[in-house]
Simulated scan of single mutants.
Amino acid sequence: MDEKSGQGESADELAGEIAGNVARQTDTADRRTVLAADRTILAAERTYAAWVRTGLGALASGIGARALLQGLVAEWLVMTTTMMLLLFAEFCFVAGIWRQLRPVLAPPETDTPRLPGSLLVTFNGFLILLGAAVMIGILTGKS
């Protein structure tokens, strides 16, 4: 019986057990780092979705403001309100894609795949063109 451990373990067995514990702790720390990186990617995607959602809300509000305010207030006020909302929508679409494709820090290795940048650019490009078409339609009086 080993006098130090009091359980009959040899020094080699104790050293092996300690090494195993250290390896498990390292694996756990590495796994926590990967999971934290996954959460960061998912948070960035939620932020991107919030920008797009806000832009779509501003786009719809601009169209609705024109429809609801026309005839109730001065035409310059209707056009100013409508254009400000539509410009804000365009800003949101640009800011959302800019923030998503230009991260501040390079993310570590993750288990979660990132959304393809080409898909995001295509989708936001369509929304920007849609907003521009609405602005042109309202400015030319074709709506």
Rank of each mutant, 00 (worst) to 15 (best):
E3P: 07
K4N: 09
K4T: 05
Q7T: 14
S10P: 08
D12W: 11
G16Y: 10
G16I: 02
E17F: 09
E17Y: 09
I18L: 12
I18F: 05
G20D: 15
G20Q: 09
G20H: 02
R24A: 14
R24H: 05
Q25G: 15
T26M: 06
T26W: 01
T28D: 06
T28I: 07
T33E: 13
V34S: 01
A36N: 03
A36G: 02
A36Y: 06
A37D: 01
D38Q: 01
R39K: 05
R46M: 13
T47F: 00
A49E: 03
A49N: 06
R53V: 10
G55S: 11
G55V: 04
G57K: 03
A60V: 15
G62W: 02
G62I: 01
I63M: 07
G64R: 00
L68M: 13
L68V: 03
Q70K: 13
Q70V: 06
V73M: 00
W76P: 12
W76H: 14
V78W: 00
T80H: 13
T81R: 01
L87I: 08
L87N: 11
F88L: 14
A89C: 06
A89G: 01
E90M: 08
E90T: 07
E90L: 14
F91V: 07
F91L: 12
F91S: 15
C92K: 05
V94S: 13
I97G: 01
W98I: 08
R99H: 14
P103W: 03
P103I: 07
L105M: 11
A106G: 07
A106T: 14
P107L: 05
P113V: 07
R114D: 11
L115C: 12
P116I: 02
G117A: 07
L120W: 02
L120Q: 12
V121G: 00
T122L: 15
G125S: 02
G125K: 10
F126N: 10
L127I: 10
L127R: 08
L127D: 00
I128K: 01
L129F: 08
L130V: 10
A132E: 05
I136T: 15
G137T: 04
I138R: 07
T140Y: 05
G141K: 04
K142F: 09
S143A: 12
